[in-house]
Simulated scan of single mutants.
Amino acid sequence: MTVWLPSLITKTPQEGYDLAVKLSRVAVKLTQPDAAIREKLRPEYAENFDALIASSQVVATNFATVAAANGYWKDTAS
């Protein structure tokens, strides 16, 4: 098994958000490993308001997890 997530620690909130998006995308790929099926289903949810909101909620949950792991970047005053 390839380790693709060695840590939740990121340097900045932007990197943390990018990681949250990646976590969300990887979850979809693990849930439905067949790329052809994912492509077939994409048009159905791409124009579905509820599906898009649900996707945003998953990213937000993942971002909250990453932010907590990073101490909310308190040490990186801008």
Rank of each mutant, 00 (worst) to 15 (best):
T76P: 00
K29V: 05
P6S: 02
A68C: 03
L5H: 02
E15K: 11
A77R: 08
F49H: 11
E47G: 15
F49A: 13
T76F: 05
A54Q: 10
Y72W: 04
I53P: 11
V59M: 08
A64H: 06
E39G: 03
Y17D: 06
R38K: 10
D34L: 12
D50F: 05
Q32N: 13
E44F: 15
L30Q: 10
D18Q: 14
A68E: 08
A69V: 00
I9R: 09
A54C: 08
F49Q: 09
A46V: 11
A54V: 12
A35D: 14
T65V: 13
A20L: 03
T76A: 07
W73N: 02
Q57Y: 10
E47R: 15
A77I: 08
P43A: 07
D34Y: 02
L23D: 05
A69M: 02
L19A: 03
P43K: 10
R38M: 13
L8N: 01
K11F: 01
T31P: 00
Y45D: 02
A67C: 07
L19K: 07
E44S: 14
S7A: 04
Q32M: 12
P43W: 10
L8Y: 04
W73I: 02
T76K: 11
K22I: 06
A69W: 02
V26M: 09
L41K: 15
I37A: 13
M1A: 07
V26C: 02
A68L: 06
N62W: 04
L19V: 06
N48A: 14
T65R: 11
A46R: 15
D75C: 05
M1H: 05
G16L: 02
N62T: 06
Q32I: 15
T12V: 03
P43G: 12
Y72S: 01
P43E: 06
K29R: 14
G16H: 03
A77G: 01
A60R: 11
Y45G: 09
L52H: 05
G16C: 03
T61K: 15
V28H: 06
P6M: 00
T31Y: 07
N62S: 10
A27Q: 10
P33M: 01
T76E: 04
D34T: 10
V26Q: 14
L23N: 09
Y17A: 04
W73F: 09
A67F: 01
D34R: 14
W4G: 03
E44N: 11
K29C: 06
L52F: 03
T2Y: 12
